[in-house]
Amino acid sequence: MKTKVLAIDDSRTIRNLLAATLEEAGFEYHCAVDGREGVDMYPDVDPDVVITDINMPNLDGFGVIEELRGEGINSKVPILVLTTESAPELKARARGAGATGWITKPFDDASLIFALKRVTGAAA
């Protein structure tokens, strides 16, 4: 079974980069174009790990984490925040909402895969 990744990012460029990197590394890749779509897609995709951007229209990354961890969905899967920001208070806020970890944009492929392995135990 491939490890299923749901990536939520409003930038087509980032989505394409993630798709290329993840598919090459043997992950099953799904994506959503904003937070709202990501949360809506979550039950159907039923991913093993979520990667989400912070600055997005229609529901930002914090909102995504809150809704996924909230009572409705009650997700337990790892959620990685993908962000250009590296401000500590932002990380603290994301973690307060239930984020598992963060990846700083621009990410290099190795860091991304390393982080995914650490949170999912994926053999990929």
Partner: peptide, 12 residues
């Protein structure tokens, strides 16, 4: 609550 799993950390 954050989805971090000790087992995976040990694996790494």
């Amino acid at each position: 609550g954050t989805g971090n799993e000790p087992f995976f950390l040990f694996q790494a």
